[in-house]
Amino acid sequence: MNKNVAGIWSREQMAQKIAEDIPDGSYVNLGIGLPELVANYIPADREVIFHTENGLLGVGPSPKPGEEDDELINAGKKPVTAIKGSCFFHHADSFAMIRGGHIDICVLGAFQISEKGDLANWSTGETDAIPAVGGAMDLVAGVKTVFIITQHFTKNGESKIVKECTYPLTGKRVVNRIYTDFAVIDVTDKGLYVIKMAPGIDFDFLKKNTEAELHLY
């Protein structure tokens, strides 16, 4: 939750900010959940090809009700469509696209991001949880640019942007940019630099509500 801060970005606005930063001609992998919204906001004058790790380049919009196909799904196992010019391939080819550095951008959710760009997004480390990793570690290890979309706070009101991740890592020094409901933040060798803030957020407030150290360009 957002501690009822006024003037912050909605989920749709966060997705729109990301979409605006995706260049024409990019190959993009969207994670499950919130990242999927990004596809709705690609500017009309740009051609962006969406990859899903279960073997499709050229993911299209959701099918109309009644036109779902059990054998045409995305990584979240939801029905999708395939655009004209799309192609299907097997899992080793799909992950060669990811691990071989052919995918330009991936957009993922997060439990925690550290100020060095470490990402934790697959396990909270609880002992009775069933561990499940999917393709997250492959994406952060192989994709050229990693964008994170997440609420600034956890459900308990804690900062998700931390000095050191306490949850099990997905990858070390892998995140390039963080889009929260409060701000857009670059991860650089010199630390975290704020690019933009939501209308109701100023830098002092942002610093007070972020565990990791923040800088302005």
């Binding site: 790790e53 097997h90 899992h91 080793a92 799909s94 992950f95 990811i98 691990r99 561990p131 499940a132 990793v133 999917g134 393709g135 997250a136 570690m137 492959d138 192989g142």
Partner: peptide
């Protein structure tokens, strides 16, 4: 538990 891409590559 094996990352999905590692699983695919191990099989390949």
């Amino acid at each position: 538990l094996v990352p999905q891409g590692t699983l695919a590559e191990r099989i390949r």
